[in-house]
Nucleic acid binder design. Structure first.
Lengths: 218, 218, 218, 218
DNA sequence: AATGAATGAGTATTCATTCAT
DNA sequence: AATGAATGAATACTCATTCAT
């Protein structure tokens, strides 16, 4: 009898592996297309085709195109912040070093990956999906800001940073990342000839300016 | 029958004077809606309605929705740079002051006005309109970058700025403006409660950081 | 100048005649098809085609298939009751004659016409359109019942009818009409061979039974 | 591999006992839903769900939705007429009493039960299923009419009823039943307030009118 | 020049039906 | 026998675009 069970389980396992894989394949395909073409210009047909299933299957897993979009956003908003907060607490170097580390880690783990596409998506479509924008605000913007705030505060507390207005300072850290994201997904395609933007160098340069300022020391 | 035509033409005579104004009204309406909703989500109906004309009239002036979009972008990319370059050449203060002046002027004349909407448009739709993106690159990005480059170079030449990598430095100046634009047109709607972003203060704070750096002077 | 106006009005008149005719043509086509095939089995395409317009035009006049359906029902629910109530008040003959007159008038003006199709429609689809059913209840059932009630009451008051329970009596009058409607639109198609139901004769026979009863007088 | 099959068959053995029951459960569920929503608006999913099986199983027993529908109708058209004809032949009372008995028996055994749903179904969908309508005609309408005809003829023969036109007289008996059926399944939901229709009372009242007529005896 | 009625290609979504397991 | 994942044909509805007036 257990032989039967075993067999059945085997069979089901294969199917289940497929069933559980489906949404993932669809989400991946959807992410690609949404980022590439935007929400409206992405046809359900195409998402299904790229995932290698029929249109009907798409709607089997996601009730509507909008739900698919939401799922794509959710899927790609990882709980990376828990890890990062831990790293913050155990970091032993100087705060400038911490900042350097943080921005480079962001680029490696987010900016350079497909995940950065959803930031671009959010910027483009936020107006049409207020509910999603709020979700993004809660899940990404707020924790992200909080982490940067902690870093800046640490720098100030330790006398490493000037006593700047932290809330505005956050954006000084944020905007280079935002810029890189847009660069990669929007303007980058038609970049200025004769000047190749190298993300890692760009980040290094921004950090230099950010930390040291443009002005020569008196 | 030609009598009718003649009469009609007579009657329409006074309308002709308004003829030149029409495209302007349409472009204005289209700018608003494109910025607010994006290209795909903006219906020709709505543009016409907001401009106070019939849908047919819209297509009388612009052969297609895409052409309308291009016209909107082109129309709003003014040759402001000639004036700004002149100002640069006649400016007599320090380069930090010049930078301050430039960014505030940008906010007053562009960022705070509807014109900033096209930057948002370009970021959102560049991928779908490479031709337009190239045009934008030529007409806005390149001259803008050139102007900032001149400012930074002036600062370095006069010993006011450190000898940073200018190409990357440009983006340090650019990104706060880019950020403000996106803030105004995308994320701003669902901003974090308890922290009101005041553009002028934000610019001042960014300039402070940019010029002085985060680190305390040794 | 008035010549122009005249011409324009002429032109517009033609168009308006067309525009105002459209909904009517569509409603007529829709009535035919809904009655023939039911709500669900009627395709919007077909309605448009039968009305001689494109699918788009259909949705120009009726926001959705459901709205079209509602409009069909409304359109065919005439204010015939005002006329009938007047006739009731000015009728001078006996109440049995009045009843005879009423049922025959119903057949001529409603039962035999396409309008009877909506009764069949309502019976079939009432469950799926509670809102419409309520509307039908208000606009047709209630006034219809009221009229029959007046007739029966008149007969009783004048000593022509027995003192029956009027509320139930109403249905004795109603059901033959309902039956004829269903006969015409449902079962009639596959009627029993060898017995041709002649509506007028059927009505006469029902009236005979209704008025005289089946039983021989004691 | 055949080992697996063997095992599976073993396991399914006890299910086989239920095998015969399956179609019955499905037919019951289908009857409910078809009556409630009509043919088109009833989804195969829902039928299967209500019957507690998977959608696949439904199509295992019934090749198509249409076949399911036909089976539902056929299943519920019982050969009750044999019994009723026997009762007719052994009935000993007066014909008016016989009529009273017949209509009340109908209500108890058919009208008040789910079986009455198929009458409603037939009325709504006859047009779309002429084949079924013919079947219904043969199996229900014709025998039913025949039985009523025998009753009326008995009354006339025994001098209890007037010598009416029997073919039309049949419908005088039929329509109250038809009406009750529609009332229960269509319009009843949104009945007129302030007047509760009690089926048994309604039948009694109709019989009174039918037998005695509306007119006072001379 | 202006209109707005008409169009029809295009797209999301549903659901009966199939079939591998 | 039973499942339920997958399918794709069918259909309501949208919207840029045309054109007669």
């Amino acid at each position: 009898m257990h032989l039967l069970k075993q067999k059945i389980e085997e069979v089901c396992a294969k199917r289940k592996r497929r069933k559980e894989a489906r949404p993932g394949e669809l989400l991946e395909a959807a992410l690609d297309l949404f980022v590439e073409r935007g929400f409206a210009a992405t046809r359900a047909d195409d998402v299904a085709a790229r995932a290698g299933v029929s249109k009907g299957t798409l709607f089997l897993y996601f009730g509507s195109k909008e739900e698919l979009f939401k799922a794509v956003v959710r899927e790609n908003i990882s709980g990376r912040f828990r890890l990062w907060n831990t790293e913050f607490e155990t970091f032993e170097g100087s705060t400038p070093d911490m900042l350097r580390y943080a921005m480079n880690a962001w680029w490696t783990n987010v900016g350079a990956t497909k995940a950065s596409g959803i930031t671009k998506l959010m910027m483009s479509e936020a107006g049409n999906f207020p509910e999603l924008a709020a979700f993004y605000q809660d899940e990404v913007i707020r924790p992200g800001n909080a982490l940067i705030r902690r870093i800046l505060q640490r720098g100030i507390d330790r006398g490493e940073f000037r006593a700047i207005n932290i809330e505005y300072g956050i954006y000084s850290v944020l905007t280079p990342m935002m810029f890189l994201t847009m660069w990669k997904h929007s303007m980058g395609a038609c970049a200025e000839q004769g000047f190749e933007l190298v993300p890692e160098d760009y980040i290094a340069a921004q950090l230099d300016t950010l930390l040291g300022g443009l002005c020569t020391k008196p």
